[in-house]
Design a protein around this nucleic acid. Structure first.
Length: 529
RNA sequence: GCGCCGGUAGCUCAGUGGAUAGAGCAGUAGCCUUCUAAGCUAUUGGUCGCAGGUCCGAUUCCUGCCCGGCGCACCA
């Protein structure tokens, strides 16, 4: 509707003032009393037209009114020059019908049809357990994919495994517990028991990495975090299949490389990086960055038209060089980075030290074990990835009404309970098809429907902006309006079966949208609590 | 030194070139003979880090500064 309204206003502006382009916005007003949509066109055009915003707004209002649209029951001009549009009751009541028809497909669209997207996230080294930071990035990446799929995009979830370079050696040393050991922890002790007798560091490292990947990372990702990756891409495979060699050849051919101090450099500065990067070191070894070039070539040859990479804030420095390689290798599509800031775990007002010995939570799986998968996901996804979030462990552990996750889930469970009750107690209400939804006129009811109406627009917006933290906020708002409605309006009324039927339709619609929103977040929608 | 991110209510965080800056938690006052009180209703609380600038209008955009986090390898 937002888009359609923008088109309508555009048309009106064209007809009235003969202006082709107008840079204005259609948005949701801050307050419901200002209607369902508000446009700032008049204020934007005021200067250009040399008229007062109010005057212009009135003209546009008249013009739009002359189109006799059924959608709006009222259009108002308000100082300093807003045009507020009020959806008609009929339009809102029809939203309930639409949701009943489409069920869980409500909000789906085809804007992404035929567009292939590669979404790479987590990609933590196979050298140890996943941290809460990996968890944040993981849930965020997963939610983005869910939104993209709902809007018709073809998404490949991908995890890149650094199983070829020096960190494998580091792991080997750690298992042997020699001077070059870098990692410690219970899992290292176990690996030491298993492989400590061997002597070849590289072999030990590879065996250990494989085991960490299979028994720690994959288990946590798949079982605890419930994220499914379509591709687990191995760095070694990229090397073995000559992508690295070939990418270097291509870059050489494009004359984007040069030799200096005995090393081969790539001119990433040509594409916005702050310094050039080494591809082949002076000792003849390929750099880690060369591996990235090979991987990029591999992605490009798989014909994705959009690339997404989720990175922790400690890796934000890679953005410009990765963008540079993509361009250097000829990738022209949209390449977006989702950077998630680090996570602080707070307990009792203090920062929990990231140490196992102190008995504090460090890893995602431990966090999930402590507070549950739903709470963990919801909490991480509530925050914009840009914020340096504090995870209040005490609050999350409480499992009480303080917790917004339960607030939302409770709304869903409540609806299920009412529906169950209706089925049990009123046998007459079986024919839910023949319903008079025009009975839904109460302010609480209409307000609830207005929120439902926003869902498809939200999903579509998120498929472009990736701001998935808006999903939990939407869920809370919808739950809020439902609870408010529930307290004001009795759903089951033996004396008024027609209204009861209409309201059952309404809450079923709410249930569908709530469940869908929670599904995009990856949180369960319980039938009972 | 350079770069990225943040600085909004007591706490954790949304938000926006425009209409009285929002939510949850915490605080205060009410609401269970009625479909789940894990709920509802009302209410207290803000110099949107500081200083300039652009604009009819800035918390939002620009510049400078202050505070906090992270990053700046021929390491992977």
């Amino acid at each position: 509707m937002k888009k359609q309204l923008a088109e309508i206003i555009k048309k009106a502006v064209l007809e009235l003032f003969d202006l082709e382009q107008a840079d204005f916005a259609v948005e949701y007003p801050k307050d419901e009393k200002f209607g369902d949509y508000a446009a700032n066109v008049a204020m934007v055009l005021a200067k250009k037209l040399g008229k007062s915003p109010i005057e212009i707004a009135e003209a546009i209002k008249l013009q739009v009114t002359s189109y006799k649209l059924q959608t709006f029951e009222k259009i108002e001009v308000v100082a300093p020059g807003y045009i507020n549009f009020y959806l008609s009751e009929k339009y809102l009541q029809d939203v309930v019908v639409e949701i009943q028809d489409k069920k869980e497909k409500f909000g789906e669209s085809e804007i992404g049809k035929g567009v292939k997207i590669n979404n790479e996230f987590i990609s933590a080294n196979p050298t140890g357990p996943l941290t809460v930071g990996n968890g944040r990035g993981g849930f965020c990446g997963d939610a983005i994919s869910r939104v993209l799929r709902k809007t018709g995009f073809e998404v490949v979830n991908e995890y890149y495994i650094n199983d070829a370079g020096g960190q494998v050696l580091k792991l080997g040393h750690s298992v042997l517990k020699d001077e070059e050991a870098a990692y410690t922890g219970e899992y290292i002790d176990e690996l030491n028991k298993k492989y400590g007798e061997l002597t070849d560091v590289k072999e030990i490292g590879q065996l250990a990495a494989k085991e960490v990947l299979e028994n720690i990372i994959k288990k946590v990702v798949v079982e605890k975090m419930q994220i499914s990756f379509d591709v687990w891409m191995s760095e070694k495979k990229i090397q073995d299949e000559n992508f690295v060699e070939r990418s270097i050849e291509i870059l050489k051919e494009k004359k984007l490389t040069y030799e200096s101090e005995g090393a081969l450099w790539l001119k990433t500065t040509k594409f916005g990086d702050d310094k050039d990067r080494v591809l082949i070191k002076s000792d003849g070894q390929k750099s880690y960055f060369a591996g990235d070039c090979g991987y990029m070539l591999n992605k490009i040859e798989r014909n994705f038209s959009r690339l997404i990479m989720g990175l922790g804030a400690d890796h934000h420095g890679y953005i410009s060089r990765l963008r540079a390689v993509a361009k250097a290798l000829g990738f022209e599509g949209d390449f977006r980075f989702v950077i998630s800031q680090l996570v602080r775990i707070m307990k009792d007002g203090k920062e929990a030290r990231m140490s196992k010995r102190a008995g504090n939570v460090v890893n995602v799986d431990e966090l999930i074990d402590a507070v549950g998968s739903d709470v963990t996901r919801f909490f991480f996804l509530m925050y914009s990835p840009d914020t340096h979030m504090s995870f209040d462990l005490g609050l999350a552990e409480e499992k009480s009404q303080k917790n917004p996750v339960f607030y939302v889930q409770y709304a869903h469970a409540r609806i299920c309970s009412v529906v169950r009750k209706a089925q049990d107690s009123i046998t007459k209400i079986q024919d839910t098809n023949n319903v008079d939804l025009s009975l839904l006129k109460d302010e609480k009811e209409l307000s609830l429907i207005r929120e439902l109406n926003k869902f498809p627009e939200l999903v579509e917006e998120l498929s472009q902006s990736y701001e998935v933290h808006k999903l939990p906020y939407f869920a809370i708002k919808l739950a809020d309006k439902f609870h408010s409605f529930y307290n004001a309006c009795k759903v089951i009324d033996e004396e008024n079966l027609e209204l009861t039927k209409a309201r059952l339709n309404l809450i079923t619609a709410v249930k569908i949208v709530l469940a869908e929103t929670l599904d995009l977040i990856g949180v369960s929608a319980p039938e009972k609590m």
